[in-house]
Amino acid sequence: MIEIKSAETQTELQGILDLQWENHLHTVTESEKNEQGFVTVRHNMDQLQLMNSIAPHIIAKDGEKVVGYILAMTKASKDLVPILIPMFAQFDQLYYQGKRVSDFEYLVIGQICVGKSHRGQGLFDRMYAAYREAFSETYSFAITEIAKSNTRSLSAHRRVGFEVIHEFKDDLFDWAIVAWDWT
């Protein structure tokens, strides 16, 4: 039985880091990237702990092993991961539902990942349901950016209710910024 819960312990945070490395774009093969997706950012323990103290990450556990996670980031955690600071700056320049994103209390999907051995079992949707339940009363919506070449991730996010609100290109990828209205 897979348990969906908030991350609470150092061991659980280490499980996130382990799963993150297993699925990082520099770790997976080209065919895995194309077929299964990938994560682009690596965090360290200090960053994960600080982020988790502001808004807890949601994890999926099979016994004691972390087999999936969704990282939670807020405006208060935007400076904790330097590579993501430009993402927050861009969000704050965008409009959503007729207002600047910065005018809302929003939650950033810092990253989502389901372990290779547990894909296709509905964990993505179950973790997002728990995420929404945990945060929808405090935050108006969730927002993130996804590499457009990560078609599996884009498709899965659309399936649970995210919509593309902006697209841009940087030195690495073409990106889609997606938002999920919880109201």
Rank of each mutant, 00 (worst) to 15 (best):
E105C: 11
L154S: 08
K5L: 06
L84E: 06
I83Y: 03
S140R: 09
V178N: 00
K169R: 14
A142F: 08
A134Y: 01
Y131D: 03
T29V: 07
I83H: 04
V39R: 01
D62N: 05
F162R: 05
K148S: 05
Y96D: 02
S149K: 08
K99W: 08
A142D: 06
S155N: 12
E105M: 10
T29A: 08
M87A: 14
R152F: 00
L94I: 13
E32P: 00
F38T: 06
M87R: 09
R158A: 07
E12R: 09
L50Y: 11
I112N: 03
D181N: 09
R159N: 10
D174A: 02
N150T: 08
T138P: 00
K169Q: 11
E30W: 07
E3I: 11
K169S: 08
T11I: 12
F91V: 04
S117L: 15
K5D: 00
K65W: 04
V67T: 13
T138N: 12
T138W: 14
V108H: 05
T138G: 09
D92H: 13
M51S: 12
P56W: 14
R126V: 07
E22H: 07
T151Q: 10
E8N: 11
S153K: 14
S31I: 12
W180K: 02
I165M: 04
D125F: 07
I16C: 02
Y128K: 03
V41Y: 01
I109T: 11
R126G: 00
D92F: 04
T74V: 13
H166Y: 11
T144E: 10
S31H: 01
T138H: 14
V114P: 04
N52R: 01
Q20V: 14
L94E: 02
H43Y: 15
E22Y: 00
E22Q: 15
H43S: 08
C113W: 03
L50T: 15
L94W: 01
V81S: 06
W21A: 15
E8Q: 14
H26M: 08
W180P: 01
V66T: 09
E3S: 10
S136T: 14
Q121V: 08
E32F: 09
E30V: 13
E133C: 12
T144H: 01
M73I: 11
S149F: 07
D62L: 05
Q121I: 06
N150F: 10
Q97L: 14
I2C: 02
D125M: 13
D125V: 15
A55W: 03
R126W: 09
F104Q: 05
I177F: 02
E12F: 05
D46S: 09
R152G: 13
I109Y: 01
T9I: 07
V178M: 08
D79M: 13
A76D: 15
D62M: 04
F88W: 15
M51G: 10
H157T: 03
I59G: 03
D18H: 09
T183A: 12
D62K: 03
F141N: 04
T29K: 08
Q20L: 15
V108E: 11
K116F: 05
F168K: 04
L94T: 06
G37W: 01
H118R: 11
I2W: 00
H118L: 13
M127E: 07
F38R: 08
S153C: 13
A72H: 03
T9D: 02
S153F: 05
N44R: 02
V114S: 04
F168W: 12
